[in-house]
Amino acid sequence: MASAPEPSAPTLQAFDRERTAAALPFAALAQAIEAAAADLQAGRIASPERTVLPLGAGGALLSMPATSHDLGIHKLVTVQPGNAARQWPTIHGIVAVCDAASGRPLCLLDGPEVTGRRTAAVSMVALRRLLGRAPRQVLLIGTGVQARHHVGAIHALFPDCPVLVRGRSDAAARAFCAQASATGHVQLCPPDIPDTVDAVVTLTTATEPVYDLPARADRAVVGVGAFKPDMAEIGRATLAGSLLYADDPAGARHEAGDLIRAGVDWNSVRSLASLLAEAPDRSRPLVFKSVGTAAWDLAAARVAVRALGLGT
Rank of each mutant, 00 (worst) to 15 (best):
I45E: 06
V97L: 04
C161S: 08
Q179E: 15
L259K: 00
A120I: 08
T204S: 12
R270V: 09
C189V: 08
P191V: 05
L239S: 06
D198K: 15
S68P: 03
A273Y: 08
P112A: 00
H155S: 05
P135L: 03
R282T: 08
A199K: 11
V97G: 09
P249N: 02
I33Q: 11
P105N: 12
A2I: 12
K75N: 14
D230P: 02
R236C: 11
S68H: 15
D99Q: 11
R133Q: 14
V114A: 09
P249S: 03
A121V: 00
D170I: 00
L157P: 02
E6M: 14
G116I: 00
L243I: 15
L139C: 04
D110P: 05
E208F: 07
T196G: 07
A22Y: 09
T205D: 13
F158E: 15
P5W: 04
A38Y: 02
A171V: 09
E255W: 07
D110L: 04
D212C: 07
A36I: 04
A273V: 12
R174S: 03
A240D: 14
F158M: 10
G241P: 01
G132R: 03
A304E: 15
A173H: 08
R216Q: 09
P89I: 00
R168W: 01
S271E: 09
A22P: 01
A240Q: 15
G72Q: 15
A32F: 01
V222L: 09
L243C: 13
F158K: 01
A35M: 11
R282Y: 03
A262V: 07
M1T: 12
H92Y: 14
L272K: 02
G142Q: 05
A57C: 10
H92W: 12
T143I: 05
A42C: 01
G132D: 07
D247W: 02
F26R: 01
A171G: 10
A14Y: 12
D39M: 07
L275S: 11
M64K: 00
A30W: 03
I260W: 07
R174C: 02
A32C: 02
G241S: 08
R128W: 07
F158W: 13
A120Y: 02
L286R: 15
C161T: 15
A96H: 11
A153W: 09
P25H: 10
A134C: 00
T115Y: 11
A295L: 00
A22N: 07
P214K: 05
L276R: 04
G93V: 04
P81T: 12
V165S: 07
T119Q: 02
A180V: 06
T115Q: 03
M231H: 12
T51M: 13
A156V: 05
G58V: 13
I234T: 10
R261K: 13
A22G: 07
V269I: 14
H254T: 14
W296L: 01
E113T: 11
D212A: 05
R86T: 10
R118N: 08
A180L: 06
V97P: 03
L139W: 08
L40H: 12
L40F: 10
L276M: 05
I141Y: 01
G116L: 00
Q41C: 05
L24E: 01
L298V: 08
L308F: 11
L213G: 02
P54H: 06
A14M: 13
G309P: 06
L127V: 10
